[in-house]
Amino acid sequence: AREMGVIAAMRDGFGFIKCVDRDVRMFFHFSEILDGNQLHIADEVEFTVVPDMLSAQRNHAIRIKKLPKGTV
Rank of each mutant, 00 (worst) to 15 (best):
D43S: 01
L34P: 05
L54D: 14
E3M: 12
A42R: 09
D43T: 04
G36T: 09
Q38C: 12
A56M: 12
V50M: 11
V45T: 04
I33S: 04
L67G: 01
I62E: 11
F27P: 15
K18N: 11
R58V: 09
Q38W: 05
Q57H: 14
S55P: 15
F14Q: 07
L34S: 10
G36Y: 05
F16M: 10
G15A: 03
D21Y: 07
K69T: 15
R58S: 11
N59R: 09
N59Q: 14
K18E: 15
I64T: 03
I7M: 04
R22H: 12
R22S: 10
V50Y: 08
R25M: 15
P51E: 13
N37P: 09
G13K: 15
G15S: 01
F14W: 13
V50G: 07
V50K: 10
I7W: 02
R11I: 03
D21R: 10
F30R: 06
E3D: 07
R22P: 06
N37E: 12
K65F: 11
P68T: 08
N59W: 08
D21I: 06
K18P: 02
I64K: 00
E32G: 05
H40Y: 10
F27S: 08
L54I: 08
A8G: 03
G15H: 03
V24D: 15
E46P: 04
T71Q: 07
R25N: 15
L67M: 04
I62A: 11
F28G: 00
I33H: 02
L67Y: 00
K69H: 15
I33M: 06
D21F: 01
N59V: 12
V50Q: 11
F27L: 12
E46D: 00
V45E: 03
G36Q: 12
L67Q: 01
H29T: 10
M4I: 11
G13Y: 04
F16Q: 05
E3H: 11
D12R: 07
L39Y: 05
T71A: 07
A1G: 12
E32W: 02
L34H: 05
M4H: 10
I41H: 13
D21V: 06
H60R: 15
P51T: 07
V49M: 07
G70H: 10
T48Q: 06
M10V: 14
V24Q: 13
G15E: 00
V50A: 12
V49F: 05
N37Q: 15
F14D: 10
N37L: 11
I33D: 03
D23N: 15
F30K: 06
A8S: 12
L54G: 13
V49T: 09
K69F: 10
A1K: 14
I17D: 01
F27N: 04
R63M: 08
N37A: 15
D52K: 09
D23E: 11
A56D: 11
F16I: 07
D35N: 06
A8Y: 04
V6I: 14
K18F: 06
E32N: 13
R11H: 15
F47E: 03
A1I: 05
G70R: 05
F47I: 01
S55L: 09
A1T: 11
I41M: 07
D35W: 02
E32I: 13
R22N: 12
D52W: 08
I17K: 00
V20A: 11
Q38P: 07
I17A: 00
D21E: 12
S55T: 13
D23H: 02
H29Y: 11
K65W: 01
I17N: 01
G15K: 02
N37G: 11
F16G: 01
D35Q: 06
E44P: 04
I41E: 12
V50C: 11
E44L: 06
G13S: 13
D21T: 14
K69G: 11
F47Y: 06
D52H: 09
S31Y: 05
H60V: 13
F16L: 10
P68N: 07
V50F: 03
L39N: 05
C19Y: 04
R11Q: 15
G70K: 07
F27I: 13
F47P: 03
D21L: 07
F30M: 07
D35M: 05
E3Y: 04
Q57I: 09
M4C: 12
D23R: 12
E44W: 06
K69N: 11
I64D: 03
D43L: 00
P68F: 01
R11T: 08
L54A: 14
T48W: 02
D23V: 03
F14N: 08
L39G: 01
E46A: 04
P68M: 06
I62N: 02
E44S: 05
L67S: 05
M10L: 15
D23P: 15
G36V: 06
R22C: 04
L39W: 00
I7V: 14
E46R: 00
T48S: 14
V72A: 10
E44F: 02
H60D: 03
G36K: 09
F16C: 08
F47A: 01
L54W: 11
R25Q: 15
N37C: 14
L34D: 10
E46N: 03
V72P: 02
A56L: 12
I33Q: 01
Q57Y: 13
H40G: 10
E46G: 01
F14H: 15
I41P: 13
V50W: 07
C19R: 08
E44K: 01
E3F: 10
H60Y: 11
A61V: 05
I62R: 06
K66Q: 09
V49A: 09
